[in-house]
Write a protein that binds this DNA or RNA. Structure first.
Lengths: 241, 241
DNA sequence: TCAAAAGTGTTCCGAATACACCCATGC
DNA sequence: GCATGGGTGTATTCGGAACACTTTTGA
C-alpha cells in the first residue's frame, strides 16, 4: 500500500496503527407478512458471544465485498432467495456494541414475499424462526435497537413509497393489501375509501381472475404495475398512502 | 481480547485476520442558508490523496469514540460550534471508494444557523468555503455521491419534520421561512396559503417584535416553539409541509 | 405619493371522511 | 334462506389552490 502514513493524517489524531482497526458487519431485518401479522426472521445464535440468544441475521463483511453484496449474501444463505428487495436504513457504531472489539454494523431491511421463502439454518444459527413484531424475544447485542429502528423506517417508507407490495404474493386482493397496511401501520382504514384511493393511483392491474376456494364472494385479484409506477414517478407523481 | 477466534466464526468465511481490517470515517454535509441560497461547507484538501481537491469535511473515527461524537468533532473543529443539529443519513462502503484501503464512511448532515458559524481552516484543509448547492465543484473520493444523497435526504426530511428552522436565525419572518423552503425544495409556495398552513400548525411563537432597518413595512418576527412541537407530536400530530 | 413587501379575506374545487347499501358465494 | 366478506355510491366536510385586496413602512 503506497505511502499510507501520508494518506492518513487525521484531524482527530488517530494514530496510523489504529486506522484499519474496525470490524464491519451487516445486519438484516427481514420482514414477512402472513395472516395479518408482520413478522421478522430471527436466528438463534450457535456461536459466542450470545450463544443461544435470538439475534438478527447478519455477518461480517469481507474486505473485498461491497455492503450490499454482503447483505444479499446473508439473506440468500438464509432463504435461498436472490434479488430480494433490500434497503439500507441506519448504521450502528457505538464503541461498546460488540464485546470482542470495535465492530460497526450497517442495518438493512428486506421484504420477502409470503410464498417464496425457505429459511434454512446455518453454521452460526441453531434455528431460525419468524416472530410477530408485536411479540419479540430478547435479542443479542444491540439488536433490539436495530430492529426497532428498522420497523420505524419501514413504517415510514411504506407510506411514501409502494414498497408494501414486496410483502404480498404477486397476485393479491384489495382486502389483503388493506390488511397489510393496517398491520404495518397499526391503524384501520375505511374500506371504500381505501379502495378508491389506491385504485385512483392507477398502479394496480386487475388480472381478471378471482379468488378460489373461499366460502364467500370471491375477490378480484390484482398485481402491482411496476412499470406504470416508474413512468408516473418520472412525471412527478408521488405515492402516498 | 478473550478468545477472539471463537467470537468470529463468519458464515461468510471471513478469515479472522481480516476481521478488524476496516477503516471507518464520518463525512459531514454541512448545510447553511443565506440570501435565498442553500449552501454546503466544503474544504480544500491539504493532504493526500486528492490534495487540492474540494471535499466534504470528515475524519477518521478513532476506535474509542462513537460515530456521533466523531461527527460532532468534525463540525466543532470547523466552525467552533457545539450541539449542532446533526443526523446520520447513509453509509458508503464500496470496496474501492478509498485509494488507500477499505474505508467505510458514515454520512451525516448538519444544519447551521446562518448567524452562528465561524469556519476555520485546519490541518488537512487548505481552505474552507460555502458553495451554493446548485453550483458545486468537482469533489474528491465519492463525495459527489455522498453530497447528493445528503441533499436528497434533507429535501425529504424537511417536508415531514420541522428541521428547516435549524437553518434560520432564532428570530425569523414568515417570508424568510417561505423563502427557505422554496430554496430547499426548488418550487414556489403561494404566500397567503403558506402562511395559513404554517400558522395553523401552532408551532410558531409571535415575538411581538418586528424587523428593523427595512425600507418597507417591517415583518413580524417569530420563533419556533420546540416544546410545543414535542407536545403535539406525542398527541400524534405529524408535521408536514 | 409611490414602491415594495407585509399581511388578510374570500371563493372555488377536489380529496378525504363517514356511512349506507348492494352483490356473490358456500352452506 | 343466511352468514360472510366483496364491492359500490353518495352526501358532507375539510383543507388546499387561486387570487384579489388592504396595510405599513422608507424615501
Amino acid at each position: 500500500m503506497s505511502q499510507p502514513n501520508k494518506y492518513f493524517i487525521s484531524e482527530n489524531n488517530v494514530p496510523f496503527n489504529d486506522v484499519f482497526q474496525f470490524g464491519l458487519s451487516v445486519d438484516c431485518v427481514v420482514f414477512g407478512y402472513q395472516e395479518g401479522q408482520v413478522r421478522v426472521l430471527l436466528i438463534e445464535r450457535d456461536a459466542d458471544p450470545y450463544k443461544g440468544s435470538w439475534a438478527l441475521p447478519g455477518d461480517l463483511v469481507s474486505p473485498n465485498e461491497d455492503l450490499e453484496f454482503a447483505a444479499n449474501s446473508v439473506l440468500n444463505k438464509l432463504t435461498g432467495l436472490k434479488d430480494i428487495f433490500m434497503e439500507q436504513f441506519y448504521t450502528f457504531g457505538s464503541v461498546d456494541r460488540h464485546p470482542a472489539g470495535r465492530v460497526a454494523t450497517v442495518g438493512y431491511y428486506s421484504l420477502v414475499k409470503t410464498n417464496n421463502y425457505h429459511p434454512v439454518a446455518s453454521s452460526w444459527a441453531k434455528s431460525i424462526q419468524w416472530f410477530d413484531i408485536r411479540e419479540l424475544p430478547e435479542l443479542a447485542f444491540d439488536h433490539k435497537n436495530i430492529l426497532e429502528k428498522g420497523i420505524k423506517t419501514l413504517q415510514h417508507r411504506v407510506r411514501y413509497r409502494p414498497v408494501g407490495f414486496e410483502l404480498l404474493p404477486l397476485k393479491f386482493t384489495l382486502s389483503e393489501l388493506q390488511e397489510l397496511y393496517e398491520a404495518l401501520l397499526g391503524y384501520k382504514f375505511d374500506k371504500p375509501n381505501f379502495r378508491k384511493k389506491i385504485l385512483a393511483m392507477d398502479l394496480l392491474i386487475a388480472l381478471g381472475e378471482v379468488q378460489e376456494n373461499v366460502w364467500h364472494r370471491p375477490a378480484k385479484l390484482y398485481k402491482f404495475d411496476e412499470g406504470r409506477y416508474r413512468a408516473l414517478r418520472n412525471e412527478g407523481f408521488a405515492f402516498e398512502l
